[in-house]
Design a protein around this nucleic acid. Sequence first.
DNA 1: GGCGAATTCAGACTTGGGACGGAGGTAAAA
DNA 2: TTTTACCTCCGTCCCAAGTCTGAATTCGCC
Lengths: 210, 210
Amino acid sequence: MTEPIKVLIVDDHDMVRRGLRAYLEIEDDIEIVGEASDGDEVLERVEALRPDVILMDLIMERVDGIEATKQVLAQHPECRVIVLTSFYDDEKVFPALEAGATSYLLKTASAEEIVEAIRKAVRGDSVIDAKVAGKMLHRFRDARPKHEQLTSREREVLILIAKGKSNAEIAEELYIGIKTVKTHVSNILSKLGVSDRTQAAIYAHEHHLV
Amino acid sequence: MTEPIKVLIVDDHDMVRRGLRAYLEIEDDIEIVGEASDGDEVLERVEALRPDVILMDLIMERVDGIEATKQVLAQHPECRVIVLTSFYDDEKVFPALEAGATSYLLKTASAEEIVEAIRKAVRGDSVIDAKVAGKMLHRFRDARPKHEQLTSREREVLILIAKGKSNAEIAEELYIGIKTVKTHVSNILSKLGVSDRTQAAIYAHEHHLV
DNA sequence: GGCGAATTCAGACTTGGGACGGAGGTAAAA
DNA sequence: TTTTACCTCCGTCCCAAGTCTGAATTCGCC
């Protein structure tokens, strides 16, 4: 038999790390080489331990899993990152996949699924949870989120709208004229395809831009 | 020494259950008598296993932890329920405590904290995570959420505002005149202490009234 | 029967929001 | 250098939104 697959576990819940250990330690082709409890520890561990696969949680205190994934893959593109998290909302899934994660599993996954995902990862194969896969299909339909077309200034204005500010307040806060604010608001409304500031505020909240 | 404390673990993540087992099995005054992976299994397990303490996750597929807690305590008020979850937002914390949970811990808690919470629970003592405790203080300050003052009609109107509807659209949808809608909107704004419909919509979204 | 709360609506009024068109300045890309 | 995108600002016009006052209806409740 060949070398065992070296795995690094990244999760801020000690409990989850223990559970994963219980899953993986009985597999003799898998070796857990280390753990990290926050994103800012990951890069250093990867340098020292040279894992083949990283099991990565997304929600962490200081540096989240998406940022950590980007950092790792920038330095070590040969690493395979398997996202293992509780969430399957758009705001987490797509940034994670864009960051270069190989697989995306939910924590409800069984031991077998996780072990299988690890083995596939070293071969370059992906495993995407069914719920997440559904989201992806959906995404390909309505393409890019509309707010990506906004300029940075428009984004600023949208945030303030979403905080309930009036045009006058926005003008004051950004040190620009009310007329200018109105122009931005008009552009925002047409880019988002909504008909008034209230709908724009709702849009911002639903897309977690606040 | 006396009887060990009988503990039931309720969590839909097999991984977490394993981690908890690793925590608790080394304590000889604690005995894990069983597990459940969804809220609808809990009552039956409690009947069969008579645990002293239940470690309860909140997010589960079919029946959530809050509902399960209510069911258990209605039948077995001597049980102590320790909520053990990843969330500390108002919408989860307060219903859980109102349902009768003894303690509220986050999954970031260490083994020692969890073991300690279990020992305290049997004596009737509570352990509340610091972040959660902060929320509670906050809650006691601004008392009842303002939207509880709304009449049922006003609540209906608020929901529609929060969906981005105009006064005219609301009037049509509720089969009433625009004037009436305006009256309701005015009342809503003053009761919520906000100055326009956009802020009302934001309020509704932040308080998950949608 | 009377009281209060909720719901409905009216008229008169003010103001803020938004559309539309025009225009100057700047910085990066072609 | 010309073009393009972005940010800035002006004025005019219109209507939706919101305030205020006042009032009629229904309903539960003491």
